[in-house]
Design a protein around this nucleic acid. Sequence first.
DNA 1: ACGAATGTTGCGGG
DNA 2: ACCCGCAACATTCG
Length: 267
Amino acid sequence: MPELPEVQTVVNSLKSHILNKSIFKIKIIDRSVIYNNYDNFHILINQKIINTFRIGKYIIIQLNNNYLAFHLRMTGYLYFSKKNITPKKHIRCYLQLNKNSFLIFEDIRRFGGFYILNDLSEIKNKIGVDPFDKRFSIDWLKIGLNNKKRQIKSLLLDQKFICGLGNIYIDEILWHSKILPLRKSNKIKYKEVKMLHLFIIKLLNDSIKHHGTTIINFKYDNMKTGNYKKKLKVYGRENKKCFRCNFLISKIKVAGRSTHICTNCQR
DNA sequence: ACGAATGTTGCGGG
DNA sequence: ACCCGCAACATTCG
């Protein structure tokens, strides 16, 4: 579920609670939550949290000597709590920061987890350009799209190309840009690239302002949900009227993912 | 009641 | 290079 705006929302909500606190205790309830280095996790004890930020869809927690890189995948929920409420069913691990401070990771489907890293190169090497990076320009996007012959939606889903977009925002961005998701990336015209570039930035920013989109599971802080769902134009609106032309929105599969389009005004 | 679907990613195979 | 299907897993929907 969580895409860039949801991940940013989580980072923003955690920051003031966890910054400058040290790790006092680590409880791993489900071993599969650590993507690497399982045996080493005790090295984190007594390290201080000196920063937290986002890279792509990763939540980075910077410590004195290491980084934790959390990925929420579909149903991850990372939040700060003043109480230890670990008997809850889907809690996979937690960090106790001090007597009344816990950083808790819940995950219903158990796909999420974190890496323990010495530096961020491993993460940076496996993802592409962030939409808020200076490198993300119209010309860069044009070259990147036209160098490949992939379905535009499939390419936008590829985190090695652009990191942070996912199924919901891609449907929304393509609707705003009036582009069908099945179009080949090398056939996208300059004018369309300009639209894509504009709406990628605009929709992500708008969504961050609304604390992201909650369809089913996404939560941040203490059970708060995102409000951007109200702004969605196509996602989840199959058989409803297109806000631009009143044609009925249809739902198809593209790149194996549910995809919402207006076949009248997207070309 | 049971198969399908759910916002993610990574892999193997054609 | 690119596309597809499947896998990981738990829950909900039709």
